[in-house]
Amino acid sequence: MSDTPQPLSETPATSAPPPFAERFSDGLQSILQKMLGTQRQSPRRIKSFLNGTWLGHPLHPVLTDVPIAAWALTAVFDIIWLISHATWAASGAFVTLIVGLLAALAAAVTGLTDWSDTYGTERRIGLNHALFNVLALLLYLLSFVLRLLAGPGDTIAATILGLLGLVSVFYAGYLGGEMVFSKGTGVNHTAWEAGGEDYEVVMAAADVQEQTLYRVTVAGVPVVLLRQGERYSAISATCPHAGGPLDEGTLVGNTVECPWHGSRFCMSDGRVLTGPAVVNAPRYDVRVTNGQVALKRLEEH
């Protein structure tokens, strides 16, 4: 039986166009993917750099702390200025505001890079997250202009704009947390995979053909197995980035590419070579005994 949903009646129905937010997201993601070279051949260095593959950790959350902290300090200096009209407080607010603006631009670029690979509910939340961050950026930019025109002193209008910007960026941060902690965006999908204490037989060695990816199960965990000559290698079959099935990916030499978002992993050691994934795939030791292939997960150090 087909899994495709069937119409409830024979009367042809005209499907409603997708909401504006969905159309906007589709168009924006398409533009971002072209700019980032998402569809290009590996190694896609720019995208991998912005994802944080080289860091072993998503780059976006590392950068977001800077504008939030800087703009929070701006608010502190502004409050001090409102109370005392101290020139040093106005100067401090001006400097931290600039730091926040510069860091926010870097955070925006990396955030949009990560968002370009999302879909469904996480994509909608991510779009709102981005919009409130853009609103905060515009408010602080206008606040910056007003402070610049005011010279060494501060202005009430600039302070109010800054406080509104802080509220906006805090709410954007809340939405960012919603993506990570409720939807699992950017979470390592292999983090909770358990490894057995003993080797587990998965298949007969005679059935393992060369240069073919096999999906096997070890201690209840899906693993992808590869034979190249007399050498065997195995890593988790789940892509750490979004859970894509690596056993259905493309094998080039000793590298497997995830069919969902193009992350590439070395089959020998699980090392991530190309983003959007940022962590290595768990690897397994392979033994061939009495014509049987047995696997055991290797502990990470």
Rank of each mutant, 00 (worst) to 15 (best):
P18M: 09
K34C: 13
L164M: 15
S15I: 10
G27E: 14
A13Y: 10
L101F: 02
D78Q: 10
Q6E: 15
Y214R: 09
P61S: 12
P18L: 15
G184Q: 12
V272I: 14
A205Y: 00
T53H: 06
D114H: 04
L148T: 14
A204P: 01
H189S: 05
S30E: 13
V76T: 11
G196S: 13
Q228E: 13
W54R: 12
H301I: 02
V66C: 09
Y174D: 04
L131M: 14
G56K: 12
V134H: 03
A89R: 02
S116H: 12
W260F: 11
S9W: 01
I79G: 01
Y284H: 03
S263H: 10
K47N: 15
K183Q: 12
H85N: 08
T110Y: 00
T190S: 00
N188A: 05
D26I: 11
V224E: 05
S91V: 10
V256F: 06
E197I: 07
R147G: 05
G165N: 10
R124K: 15
Y119D: 13
L73C: 12
Y174M: 10
G177A: 13
T74R: 04
R227N: 08
H189E: 09
A194R: 12
Y140V: 03
A191T: 06
P152W: 09
G275Y: 00
K47V: 07
P259N: 15
Y171D: 03
G162K: 05
Q33K: 15
V169Y: 00
S48Y: 02
G151Y: 07
N254R: 14
F20W: 14
E299R: 08
L164H: 03
T118S: 05
S236Y: 01
G275K: 03
G262L: 03
G229Q: 07
T110S: 11
T238C: 08
T155N: 08
N290Q: 15
A158C: 11
A219N: 15
V293A: 03
P61C: 06
G243K: 04
A204N: 10
L166I: 12
D269T: 14
W71L: 05
Y284L: 08
V202G: 01
L149M: 12
A234M: 05
Q41L: 14
L55Y: 10
S168M: 04
R215Q: 12
S168F: 00
G196E: 00
A130R: 00
L112W: 09
V187F: 03
L55S: 14
E193Q: 09
H261L: 09
E300T: 09
